[in-house]
Amino acid sequence: MSAASRAIPIDSVPRSVWAIPLLLGVVLLLEVTVMPFIGILNGVPDLLAPTVVAIGMLRGPLSGAVAGMVGGLFIELASPIGTLGVLALLYLCVGALAGRYHEREESMGLVVPIVFSIVAAGAVELGYGVVQALLGNGLGPADLVGQVILPSMALTALLSPPVLLAARYLLVPREPKPEASA
């Protein structure tokens, strides 16, 4: 059998196989290249939080947890920071918790995922701040909230809607159009 005849048309590849890696790949590239340059105060927009929330809500807690762990690990590997496994664990928790809304009406709207994403971005910063405090790099509570958590949540709120819409476009299978009646 020739290679050409073995080629699989893209339409026949299940959406679940390529949609999550594609979404996660694009978001992670943006997160480690562009996002650190557009922060406000000490906050940086968190694109991974809405992505993991969307994957968790639309594909279930295990998919959300795996996406969160992979995403967190990638950021820690690709950015010049001094931790490994911390962000992976935090985003894993975000994905697993978002997955509890899987197959519920709230997951199909936009308000709950946006609110969840903003809270998740703040929670990740808070969790990372606690770990940094344990490592001796801690900020004061006022600086942590005022300069890190609130700016990150605000920037994430701005960027969550397009990320969530893109995630929904990629992850929710479109229903076939009904045939026109004669």
């Binding site: 295990l62 947890a65 762990m69 967190g72 490994l84 496994g85 664990l89 928790c93 697993a96």
Partner: peptide, 30 residues
């Protein structure tokens, strides 16, 4: 169980990373 296993894996990576030296395997991978 799978999610708990993944969380434990993260904790193991985190612990090993901070226990090893700067030339350890996890630092090298990073």
């Amino acid at each position: 169980l799978a999610i708990i296993g993944l969380a434990l894996a993260c904790l193991a990576i985190f612990t090993l990373y901070f226990r090893e030296s700067d030339s350890g395997p996890l630092h090298s991978v990073q």
